[in-house]
Amino acid sequence: MEYRFSLKEQLFQLEEKLLKPEIRISNDELTNLLADSFFEFGSSGKVLYKNESVGEMNLGIVQMEMSDFEIHPLSEEIVLTTYRIYNAMTEQHSLRSSIWKLIDGRWKMHFHQGTKVTS
Rank of each mutant, 00 (worst) to 15 (best):
F12P: 00
V117T: 10
P73R: 03
L74M: 11
S43V: 15
L14M: 09
E22M: 05
Q113M: 10
T115F: 02
Q13N: 12
G105K: 12
V79Y: 13
P21Q: 03
F12W: 14
E22V: 06
L59C: 12
D28M: 03
L34C: 04
L34F: 09
K101D: 05
M109P: 07
Q63D: 15
E2S: 11
K8H: 11
W100S: 00
M66Y: 03
I78Y: 00
L33Y: 04
S94T: 05
L34I: 02
E9S: 04
W107Y: 09
Y3C: 12
V117A: 08
H112S: 08
Y49W: 06
M1Y: 13
H112W: 05
N27R: 08
F111W: 12
G42R: 03
I78N: 07
Y49N: 09
G42H: 06
K116F: 15
F41L: 08
P21T: 06
F69G: 09
V117C: 07
E91T: 08
T31D: 11
S75W: 03
V54I: 15
S67Q: 03
H110K: 05
G60Q: 08
A88S: 14
E52Y: 10
L59D: 15
A88Y: 12
M1A: 12
I78Q: 06
Y86W: 11
K46N: 11
W100H: 05
F38A: 03
D28F: 14
L80N: 04
I71G: 04
E2M: 09
S37A: 12
G60F: 08
F111H: 12
Q92T: 13
Q63N: 15
L102P: 05
K108N: 01
S67I: 05
Y3K: 13
F38M: 05
I78M: 13
S53W: 12
E40W: 02
L7K: 06
N27A: 08
A88P: 00
L11S: 06
F39W: 15
E52T: 10
L19Y: 00
F5T: 14
T81I: 04
E77Y: 14
E65M: 09
R24N: 10
T82S: 14
T31R: 06
F39C: 12
S37T: 15
N32Q: 13
H72K: 13
F12D: 06
T90S: 10
A88C: 05
I103E: 12
P21E: 03
K116T: 14
G45Q: 06
H93Q: 08
A35R: 04
S37G: 01
S97A: 13
H93I: 00
L14V: 06
M89R: 14
N27C: 08
T31C: 01
S94P: 01
P21K: 03
E52C: 01
H93N: 11
E56I: 09
L19Q: 02
E77A: 12
E2D: 14
P21V: 07
K17W: 06
E56K: 14
E77N: 15
I23Y: 07
D104V: 02
F12V: 00
Q63K: 14
P73V: 09
S53A: 13
F111V: 05
Y49L: 04
K8P: 01
K50Q: 09
T82Y: 06
E70L: 04
E91R: 11
F38S: 08
P21M: 00
I25H: 10
Y86K: 10
